[in-house]
Design a protein around this nucleic acid. Structure first.
Length: 272
DNA sequence: GTTGACACCTGGACGC
DNA sequence: TGCGTCCAGGTGTCAA
């Protein structure tokens, strides 16, 4: 599933492929995926040029001059650049045809992804994405996190998945960050100390930077556009490593549900 | 304001 | 082999 590192990999790949391409035609095969309605989406995208591709958290943002096209890949969204002659395959829901007859195709097995076409205006990116600070942002400090946690009785794992606090962490990296920080996922946010917040910040910065460098994590169905496959899964310490030994202490890694999400942890290194 | 439950979706794994 | 059930999980919405 695409998290911040995977989305950044997609952004970097697409930037080399479609910058300055002009849109000739748009086809929407699953109307619920686009906002505003498909008719307007198709009409407004025609003749636009891809000026740049930005990212905010897990959102991809296509700069089209007067408009932004926001795209969230959710669980299994992928972009592929293909020739117009190639047959449309199952699960390709939005097809953007350029004037050079290449096509950017959005493929999403589970139809969770969403695209929004919105005119540029002040703070529109912040309004749409509603993101907190990203790992490696110099403003993401232990004091920032400590202040955010102060009144939260939610489990720290759930808080790390809240994009309004730290942007870009998903289930995989939340599991890895808490393991690296040696903090139990069920600890309440307000019970964490300033030092523990610093450990979370340090682990987030280190893990996300390494994951981006390695092209993200490829688990099950996820690959980025052009089939670029991430390598970070080789460095996962606990995620999807249930019943294997903890790399640190040798205890057996456990899996449990926390608010419906699979949570992997070492019972010895991450004591309550 | 905070928190938890649920819906959205489909393919794969698993048990019978 | 075929069928039914469960699971994966990011985000928005709604109710308590």
């Amino acid at each position: 599933m695409p998290e911040i590192a995977e989305v950044e990999t997609v952004r970097r790949t697409l930037r080399t492929q479609i910058i300055n391409k002009k849109i000739k035609k748009v086809t929407v095969l699953y109307e619920k995926m686009v906002t505003p309605n498909a008719e307007l989406f198709i009409k407004e995208l025609k003749n636009k040029v891809i000026i740049d591709i930005l990212r905010r958290g897990k959102w991809l943002i296509f700069d089209l001059g007067q408009d932004y096209l926001f795209s969230h890949l959710r669980m299994e969204g992928k972009f592929f650049l293909k020739d117009q002659q190639m047959p449309i395959v199952k699960h390709e829901h939005v097809i953007i045809t350029f004037t050079d007859n290449s096509e950017l195709r959005y493929h999403d097995t589970r139809k969770f992804g969403r695209m929004l076409l919105i005119p540029k205006s002040e703070n529109i990116i912040e309004t749409i994405t509603r993101q907190g600070l990203e790992p490696n942002d110099q403003n993401l400090t232990s004091k920032y996190l400590y202040a955010k946690l102060r009144n939260k009785s939610l489990a720290i794992k759930s808080i790390l998945l809240d994009q309004k606090i730290i942007s870009g962490l998903g289930n995989i990296y939340a599991n890895e960050v808490l393991y690296a920080s040696q903090i139990n996922p069920w600890r309440r946010g307000k019970d964490l100390t300033l030092k523990e917040c610093q450990r979370i910040i340090d682990a987030s910065n280190q893990i996300i930077a390494q994951a981006i460098e390695l092209g993200g994590t490829t688990i099950k169905s996820y690959t980025s556009s052009l089939g670029v496959t991430g390598q970070f899964q080789q460095y996962l310490q606990v995620h999807q490593r249930e019943k294997t030994n903890c790399p640190n202490c040798g205890s057996v890694i456990l899996r449990a549900k926390l608010n419906g999400r699979s949570t992997y942890y070492c019972p010895k290194c991450q004591k309550k």
